[in-house]
Computed example of a mutant assay.
Amino acid sequence: MNKIAMLLNPAVRSRVFAAAALERMSRLANELAVPAEPLSPEGSAALIRGAEAAVTSWMSPQLNEELLDEAPDLKIVLHAAGSVKPVVSEALQARGIRVVSAASVLSRGVAETALGLTIVSLKNIWDIADRTRDGDWWNNRADETRSRIRELFGVTIGCIGAGQAGRRYLELLRHFRVDVLLYDPTVSAEQAVRLGARSVSLEELMAASDVVTVLAPEIPATYHMINERTLSAMKDDAILINLARGSLVDEQALRRRLSAAA
């Protein structure tokens, strides 16, 4: 390969790639173009000029017509992050350039975070930590806090979305004796069973779950799917965990629901 262009700001590159990884990558091409300064439109054009492969990540520029004209031999874009939406353009798709991402690898961390938040939220760790710092561990107020501690046992977990992160989350939940509900219109009832869950409507999931974990993609159909109607169906002591994009939750409706349950 003649040239690999790394369209990453230095701060992002240092977080994503170890020096050893960059050294290995440099052996794959005659030239590994690495920016020393934060990317500008002119700098991005110079980096990608003549490249056959481009590496992108968070904060990388969109690969639009203007940039692609600088690299007529570009064959592949390697996106060292999850969603490729920020970098993919219609021009990139029209040219048939292959795009791959690190979504599968990152989904493990997202699923582990979802499980961790599920456990600490059920155990009411946030409130307990505050009470402990305030020296309130052994008074009546602390007893009330401890009474809200639950285990990841015998509760109902609702998972919204069975993409890569959602499936890994469901896999982790298999190690616990819990009932798991799944809402994902692209997954059949039989597929849900194989994932260790029961396929239900969004309304049933919201009403029955002790913990609702949102892992759905950001698409027009999921915009504000957590809204006044769905939130009103939740139990007053239910837990909502959103590891998807913020646009899936109507924050004003959530604020009103929290006030009503207080």
Rank of each mutant, 00 (worst) to 15 (best):
L67T: 04
M25Q: 10
L68N: 01
L28A: 13
T56C: 04
S60P: 06
R27H: 12
H79Q: 02
L78D: 03
L39D: 04
A45Q: 10
I48T: 07
A29S: 14
R27Y: 01
G43R: 11
G50K: 09
L67F: 09
S26L: 07
E23K: 13
E42L: 10
I76R: 08
M59P: 00
R49A: 14
R24N: 14
R27L: 12
N64V: 00
G50P: 04
S44M: 07
P61W: 01
E66V: 08
A29W: 12
S57M: 08
P41W: 13
S40F: 07
E31V: 15
L47E: 03
L47Y: 02
P41L: 07
A51N: 06
D69I: 01
T56L: 04
E65I: 01
L78F: 12
E37G: 02
A36R: 15
E65A: 12
A71N: 10
L28I: 04
E31D: 14
V34C: 13
L22S: 10
L39S: 07
A36G: 15
E52H: 11
S57F: 11
L74C: 06
R49M: 00
A46P: 11
L32A: 09
V77D: 07
E70P: 00
D69H: 12
A71I: 01
A36H: 14
W58S: 00
L32Y: 12
I48L: 14
A54H: 06
Q62Y: 00
E37D: 15
M59S: 13
M25G: 04
L22R: 04
R49H: 10
A33Y: 11
L74G: 05
A53R: 08
R27M: 09
E31F: 03
G50W: 12
L78S: 13
L68T: 04
A54I: 09
I48Y: 05
A33F: 10
G50A: 07
L28P: 06
H79S: 06
S40H: 12
P38E: 13
N30L: 10
T56F: 02
P41C: 09
P38S: 06
D73G: 07
H79D: 02
L39A: 07
P41E: 09
A36T: 15
L68I: 03
